[in-house]
């Protein structure tokens, strides 16, 4: 197939699964007639009709409640929360209800819901429409957390998330929507919990997620010109977490860098660093280094936002300064 934008890959991936499973439905604000405020659901209403693709009021609790209730009674559901920041207004249902219902009921309930949401910065939207909140969900037992970095993975991980019987929060990065990538012909179904080594190297390991993956790759390219061979891992899913791919890489390169868009405290890299510190301590030749957004609300001004989120320059500079 020709190249597909990340934006179009979202609708493409959903359509692949809706054709497969006639029970699968989707709901959210402006997703049907408008095709989504980010145009990630364009064409789905036309193909699948208003019974399966439904617009809702601005009622995030009602949206996720409906998704959960339908899912636990036999209808798999994709729910869209327009901006991931808005998870805060329905986090009771995310964190206390859908995440816990199976465990709390001794396994009586199954909740096959995918919560899709637009995540991340770079759009100059300010502190309430730009956050990277994947760590909010990562810390809740009972949720799976997915954040693809490219068009192909959007399709493969969307299928995996929809077919997974547990609740999945699927983060679509706003600043990747316009990027294009090759999407192979035919059905694509990935497995959750598999990271990808997107560039091989021997001197250090850079672990990244979503928008940070292309930035880490660009930094690695620049480092290569300076004689430093960096291996780049796209984590792809935070829960399940593919620690084996990370540990195997660190065993080879002996250094770990995480590149995280989330603010510093309790970002996913802290967990990755902790695991590597625990389990690969004797493989390490130097400190574990986390490159993150500082612990501040995201500013709106272009210049400030660009300073806050890890850039290619900052990744490159941090590694050259700290790698012996």
């Amino acid at each position: 197939m020709a190249e597909l934008s990340y934006r179009d890959a979202v609708a493409y991936g959903i359509a692949q699964e809706m054709r497969r499973d006639p029970n699968l439905v989707m709901l959210g604000e402006d997703i049907a007639a408008a095709g989504g405020v980010f145009k990630t659901t364009v064409g789905l209403l036309d193909e699948f009709g208003p019974r399966r693709i439904r617009d809702t009021p601005i009622s995030e609790q009602a949206i996720l409640g409906a998704a959960m209730g339908a899912a636990m009674t036999g209808i798999p559901v994709i729910a869209e929360i327009m901006f991931s920041d808005f998870l805060a207004v329905c986090f009771d249902i995310v964190a206390n209800e859908m995440a816990k219902s199976r465990y709390m009921t001794g396994g009586q309930m199954t909740v096959p819901v995918v919560v899709r949401t637009a995540n991340g910065g770079g759009s100059r939207f300010g502190a309430q429409h730009s956050q990277s909140v994947e760590n909010w969900c990562m810390m809740i037992p009972g949720l799976k957390v997915v954040a693809p970095s490219n068009s192909r993975d959007v399709v493969g991980l969307m299928a995996a998330s929809i077919r997974d019987p547990d609740p999945v929060v699927f983060f679509e990065h706003k600043s990747l929507l316009a990027t294009k990538g090759e999407v192979p012909e035919g059905e694509i179904v990935d497995e959750l919990g598999k990271a990808t080594v997107v560039r091989e190297g021997t001197d250090c390991t850079i672990v990244a997620l979503a928008l940070m993956v292309p930035r880490a790759l660009a930094a690695a390219e620049r480092l290569a010109g300076e004689g430093i061979s960096a291996e780049v891992i796209d984590l792809r899913t935070l829960v399940p977490l593919d620690t084996q791919t990370v540990l195997a890489s660190v065993a080879k390169t002996n250094r770990l860098y995480t590149v995280e868009e989330n603010p510093r405290l309790c970002g996913w890299g802290a967990e990755v660093a902790s695991i590597v510190g625990d389990e690969a301590f004797w493989d390490l030749d130097g400190p574990l280094v986390r490159i993150t957004t500082p612990h501040i609300p995201l500013p709106a001004a272009e210049a400030l936002e660009d300073m806050a989120i890890p850039s290619v320059d900052r990744i490159h500079e941090t590694i050259t300064k700290t790698l012996d």
């Binding site: 029970n23 439905v25 019974r51 609790q61 009602a62 996720l64 409640g65 409906a66 998704a67 959960m68 209730g69 339908a70 899912a71 636990m72 009674t73 036999g74 209808i75 559901v77 009771d92 249902i93 206390n96 209800e97």
Partner: peptide, 18 residues
């Protein structure tokens, strides 16, 4: 935690409708 389950009940009703 009161409230959420009214929304969840809607989902069960929606499922029955579908």
């Amino acid at each position: 935690i009161i409230g959420a389950h009214l929304c969840i009940a809607n989902g069960a009703g929606w499922s029955a409708q579908l």
